[in-house]
Computed example of a mutant assay.
Amino acid sequence: MVFKDRTAAGQLLAAQLAAYANRKDVIVLALPRGGVPVAFEVARKINAPLDVFLVRKLGVPGHEELAMGAIASGGVQVLNEAVVQMLGLSQKVIEQVATQEQQELNRRERLYRDDRPFPVLHERTVILVDDGLATGTTMRAAVVALRQQQPARLLVAVPVSSPEAYQEMQKLVDEIVCPQTPDPFYSVGLWYQDFPQVSDEEVCDLLKRATNNNQHSTVSN
């Protein structure tokens, strides 16, 4: 199955998360930027607040699409030891890339959050959403970071995942919701008809709309 776009994928994912609808303890967290349009549909359909959680992939210099690790909000760093050892990457190289990505993470944090405090996740049910999992490295960093917040339950929800990343996530979270795990997988974008880059402006717009939706819903209730 190939999704029309991230919006359609989010709507399908929301249907599989119907058990979490209209619950006061639930919050949806999106991994920017590609996860935000997917998560927007999920949050809208299940009537839950939407926020973002910042994670940055640490790409191998010269082969940036290959993840040697990831960093997340809260100072968490996760390394893909197999890649690091295979390529003989030094600590200095890792630190140089991590410093660059930390600057971008901080920039996005300021832009997307606009001084809003990060939501309290303690004892809440957190649904962590992205547009797909290839290696799962960035999602793993997010999970490690969010575990420090001590949520009552942590879910990962993605429209599509490689079988390997799916199996790893099963061990790390309380539940993973994923409609399909094709094999061979190749890449996330292959499973979407329309898979454009998501802009900062689109992220900010969707977060604003989600806040308005949630406020309206709270008033209605």
Rank of each mutant, 00 (worst) to 15 (best):
V129I: 15
L172V: 12
V156D: 04
P163L: 11
R153Q: 12
R147L: 13
V143R: 14
Q96M: 14
Q170P: 01
E164M: 11
I94E: 08
Q102A: 08
R147S: 07
H122C: 12
P119K: 09
I94W: 11
P159E: 07
M86R: 11
A98W: 11
Q103E: 12
E175K: 13
R153G: 01
V177P: 04
P159L: 03
V144K: 14
G136D: 02
V144I: 14
D174T: 00
Q96N: 14
D115C: 05
A141P: 00
L128N: 06
R110I: 03
D131V: 06
G132V: 06
Y166T: 03
S161N: 06
Q103V: 10
Q85I: 00
Q102G: 03
V156K: 01
I94D: 04
I94M: 09
E168W: 06
V126Y: 09
Q149Y: 07
Q91T: 14
M169E: 09
L146T: 07
V143E: 12
R113G: 04
R107Y: 06
L154N: 02
A134Y: 08
S90R: 11
E109Y: 09
Q85V: 00
E104V: 03
P117A: 13
D174N: 14
L111K: 11
T99I: 10
V84T: 01
V84I: 13
Q103W: 04
R107T: 00
S90C: 10
V144T: 14
A98N: 11
K92W: 05
V144E: 15
L121E: 05
Q100E: 15
A142D: 08
A82P: 00
I127E: 10
G88P: 02
D130I: 03
R110C: 03
L154V: 02
V144W: 09
Q103P: 00
M169Y: 10
T135I: 07
L111G: 04
T137R: 02
Q100S: 14
C178R: 02
